[in-house]
Amino acid sequence: MKSKTIVPIDRERVLAPGEYIISTADLSGRITSVNDVLVEFSGYSRDELLNAQHNIIRHPEMPRTVFWLAWDALQSGEDFSAYIRNMSKDGSFYWVFAHILPEHDAAGNISGYRSVRRCPRRTAVTTLSELYAEMLAAERAVAAKDAIEAGLTILRRHLSASGTSYERMIAGL
């Protein structure tokens, strides 16, 4: 279980180009399998990760809106890509480019999710850090129930100004 007492610290860990974090989760977001790279980067043991909610590695500086978008896409059967800042057990952070796919059973129902994460492009991290900070500020400025809509408003404004879709923005960063 994620400890609420973890204090984020300003120390970044960086995935090497050939390192991939691969994990799977069930429909409720509970982790069902992890590879060694996730164990290493998260700082949690395999046993601590298995059956834990995937938000065990969520960093408090990440806008909730990004995770809402991910769930919205995955539950509709679509894949989803995002740059995500994760938090290790010791409070340090690591950025990933995450690609998440829904997995299906034989009847075509979504049975879980598979995520492949790798080192991100630094220019993308720089660009998105500013956007995420703006989204986070908007989320924090309103009541919790309105936070997602506030974050989405900032994201929509950003996309509208650049005349592109979310998917193309992420692909081109």
Binding site: R157, L159, S160
Partner: peptide, 8 residues
């Protein structure tokens, strides 16, 4: 492309 929708 206007940002009114975020997914296809």
């Amino acid at each position: 492309h206007s940002g009114r929708a975020l997914r296809t």
